[in-house]
Write a protein that binds this DNA or RNA. Structure first.
Lengths: 178, 178
DNA sequence: CATCCTCCTCTACAGGTGTAGAAGACTCTA
DNA sequence: TAGAGTCTTCTACACCTGTAGAGGAGGATG
């Protein structure tokens, strides 16, 4: 499908050059399509942004399925996989920042692991699971951000390795403790 | 000083419109300076970016001074103050993302609370303080990000209020626990 | 076969953007 | 007061960007 080809190219572009690199013609080139194609499918830039954000959200939905027998481990593995798919995660950060001044985007990126986090917190017997869940998601976001763009990106273990998963698991376990 | 006037305007622009809004002429307008001023002080766009990132780093350096008698409290207050200065923090995130494809920026944003975090971890008697410190910074980054641009931005308590500080403090305390 | 419809490609154009240099205004020293 | 040196403003220009519409290719339907 041509539409997906375009949004995928847009995601790569945003990851590699930031929002500024996202132009109709750059997407054409990146996707190997004749000039004008992107502009035909997404007439305005706003539409193009919403398009790639929606695609991002679609792809993400599948990922989040924690194993109840090994909560920490499965979460750690998911996080590590997001570190490996660096570009997709970077594009997601760019999109979140963009949503700061384009609130419409927020509704596209439902990406709401909050209920899930609250459920986990309840399961593990936190008092005030609402808040514990929020803190927990915050911690996961932070781990990811720290390792991908923050201080940990120059220091931490290489994503995709056993060591990386071990490190993440230790952190997640600590965060899960009631 | 005109230079600071310009970089400050750049920070506001980036916070409000993202990196894409950062153009020489837009900065001129924002700073109320005649057209061409920004271009005279920062001939290339790269220079302009480095300029505002350096200014950001300068301003930040002063902030990080935790009180040893109330570590959690003082950190919580610092975090809350960063939430209040929304624009500065947003601009910092934009800069960090930018540093992903412009590594030179990383050396400007030294912003290295890592040693500090390791020291705190050691003080609190963590085994492996190196790692605990990293996880701790990750958690703080995450708290900030979550509350400012992530899911918590639509839900959490209003920055600058007592409730906000209380919430942050609870989270920080949890993160500090050995 | 003619007709319609959808998908695709090309071209146009009015703005905006990065960058450079010329010329003027100002300030300090001798 | 004259001159040198710096700071500021203006203008130029090649290029890029968003957006629109005209027309063609191709396939399905009658």
């Amino acid at each position: 499908m041509r539409r997906d080809l375009i949004t995928d190219a847009a995601i790569q572009l945003v990851a590699e050059q930031g929002m500024r690199g996202l132009t109709h013609r750059a997407v054409d080139r990146r996707a190997g399509l004749p000039e004008g194609s992107t502009s035909a499918y997404f007439r305005t830039r706003k539409a193009l942004i919403e398009g790639f954000v929606a695609r991002l959200a679609d792809q993400e939905r599948l990922d989040v399925v924690p194993d109840p027998d090994d909560v920490a481990g499965s979460i750690a593995r998911t996080l590590d996989s997001w570190l490996v798919e660096r570009n997709r995660t970077l594009a997601r950060y760019a999109a979140m920042l963009e949503a700061t001044h384009h609130p419409e985007l927020k509704s596209i990126m439902v990406h709401s692991p909050r209920e899930q986090a609250t459920a986990i917190a309840k399961m593990l017997g936190h008092e005030d699971p609402e808040r514990a869940g929020a803190h927990f998601t915050a911690f996961l976001e932070g781990l990811l951000f720290y390792r991908l763009v923050g201080g940990g990106s120059t220091v931490g273990p290489t994503p995709g390795t056993e060591e990386s998963v071990r490190d993440l698991r230790k952190a997640v376990e600590k965060a899960l403790r009631p």
